[in-house]
Amino acid sequence: MQDSAGTPIIRVEGLGKTYADGFEALKNINLDVYSGEIFALLGPNGAGKTTLINIICGITRPSGGRITVDGRDIIRDFRHTRSMIGLVPQELSTDMFESVWSTVSFSRGLFGRPADPQHIEKILRSLSLWNKKDSKIMTLSGGMKRRVLIAKALAHEPRILFLDEPTAGVDVELRKDMWQIVRDLRESGVTIILTTHYIEEAEMIADRIGVINHGEIIRVQEKHELMQELGRKQLVVHLHAPLARVPDSLESYALELADNGTRLVYTYETRAERTGITALLQQISDAGIRFHDIETSESSLEEIFVGLVKQVVPPASAVARGEVR
């Protein structure tokens, strides 16, 4: 798990990126990622997720700011910092004519590690690729190619792994396998930073969530804290008979009528000390309204995410909160 009190393994300070055409992809990004955590970076298309990852990995040049990995500058000490990082790109970019074994071995050497067939075998077995080791990559399915990319990224035993949309385009079964692989990697001490479109993916496996939009980080927080802070719950009361309007006596609860007046919907804050549910149910009874069922639902991370990215300009307090410095 992350050691939020310790020195971050990745520190991004005042990072900016403006492309030659003037497009500002990243604006004053400040971010810490701690050793051993799974950090999910969420954001709509074009938010700047891949640009941020590419800059940390050395593929894209920053326009300003500073990044350190393991306390070392990624430009000055690029040999040290890059040897610590593995990257699984979004695109299925592979050497189509190579065998699985040779392409993974190539990656290990490229990152400055001596040949270690035992380690390569261990990776291939853990990713269910062992029986495909001699197959040419062009003969593999999309899911298998994705596994090959993960194997390549792990070949040099990195301490940090970037997964850019790792489950994009893979079936549900494989996606679950991927999640298990990510958990296993975390157990082995690898720090994982993933971007994803599948919010439930982040909800299931991430320790912390970062939300990026229009090149700005608008929120970084522990997942559970985020959901508790920004999540809302709803109480739905199923009525025996439909109502034409909400009685005046219940006006203070800001109830909504749904399903042709057969349901009363009450929205409340999860953080609130008093939810008002007991009093509400009592007053409904006092108003002579009969109901036959009640249910509650909690907003998902996806709803929180949608709510966050809809904010055109993030409040300064949100940026200053949590791990965003």
Binding site: C57, I59, R79, R82, P89, T94, D95, F111, G112, K152
Partner: peptide
């Protein structure tokens, strides 16, 4: 062309 250049660019070389 294939996009695998990312690996060379992100390597410690």
């Amino acid at each position: 062309f294939t996009g695998t250049i990312f690996e060379v660019l992100s390597a410690p070389i």
